[in-house]
Simulated assay, not measured.
Amino acid sequence: MLASVITRHVWEEYREEVIDEIRHTPEWKELYPKRKESIERVFGDCKEHHNLRYTRLRGLQKNQHQALMIFACHNLKRMERWSWKTSSNSIIKRMFSIIFRIFKNRLGGSD
């Protein structure tokens, strides 16, 4: 029987020290509760509305591609909402065309 060896990165100890120091500052204590409202809400919405609670595909790569597409569409939807608020629609349209071209190339379509 072979024994498994787990090695830590050389900076891991320093990273943990920095995180512990930052976590106890007053600024961090003020910002951390807002995560629920901004960051974690996105994952919750996608789990609820885009069927990310369970997988329908087999294989890690297929599931990663599905999640990538779902979050990309989620971000595009948010960008579209922002475009209604701003007057520079041409920039948003250029960004959409670039993003769609990238996805088309990644999925094997021709440009």
Rank of each mutant, 00 (worst) to 15 (best):
M1C: 05
M1Y: 06
L2G: 09
A3Q: 14
A3W: 03
S4K: 12
S4Q: 07
S4L: 14
V5P: 02
T7E: 02
H9S: 13
H9K: 15
V10S: 14
E13R: 06
E13Q: 07
Y14T: 09
Y14E: 14
Y14K: 14
R15E: 12
E16K: 12
E17F: 02
V18R: 03
V18N: 01
E21D: 10
T25I: 02
T25G: 01
P26D: 07
E27V: 13
E27P: 02
W28H: 13
K29A: 04
E30H: 12
E30D: 11
L31E: 12
P33I: 02
P33A: 04
K34R: 14
E37M: 09
E37P: 00
E37A: 13
S38N: 11
E40C: 01
E40V: 00
R41T: 01
F43R: 04
G44F: 06
D45W: 08
C46P: 00
C46H: 01
C46F: 00
K47W: 02
E48H: 11
H50C: 14
N51S: 14
N51H: 15
R53M: 05
Y54C: 05
Y54A: 06
Y54T: 11
T55E: 12
T55C: 08
R56P: 02
R56C: 03
R56H: 09
R56I: 00
L57N: 08
R58G: 08
G59S: 05
K62C: 09
K62P: 01
K62N: 13
H65I: 06
H65R: 09
Q66I: 01
Q66A: 10
A67W: 00
A67Q: 07
L68W: 04
L68M: 09
L68I: 03
M69A: 13
M69R: 06
I70T: 15
F71R: 03
F71V: 12
C73A: 15
H74P: 01
H74I: 00
N75P: 00
L76F: 08
L76E: 15
K77Q: 14
R78C: 04
R78S: 05
M79Q: 10
R81V: 01
R81E: 12
S83E: 12
W84L: 08
K85S: 12
T86C: 12
S87F: 08
N89A: 10
N89H: 09
N89Y: 04
S90P: 00
I91R: 10
I91L: 11
F96R: 15
F96W: 15
S97E: 15
S97L: 10
I99Y: 11
R101M: 05
R101F: 04
I102P: 00
I102Y: 05
F103R: 03
K104R: 14
N105C: 03
R106A: 11
G108L: 04
S110W: 06
D111R: 06
D111A: 11
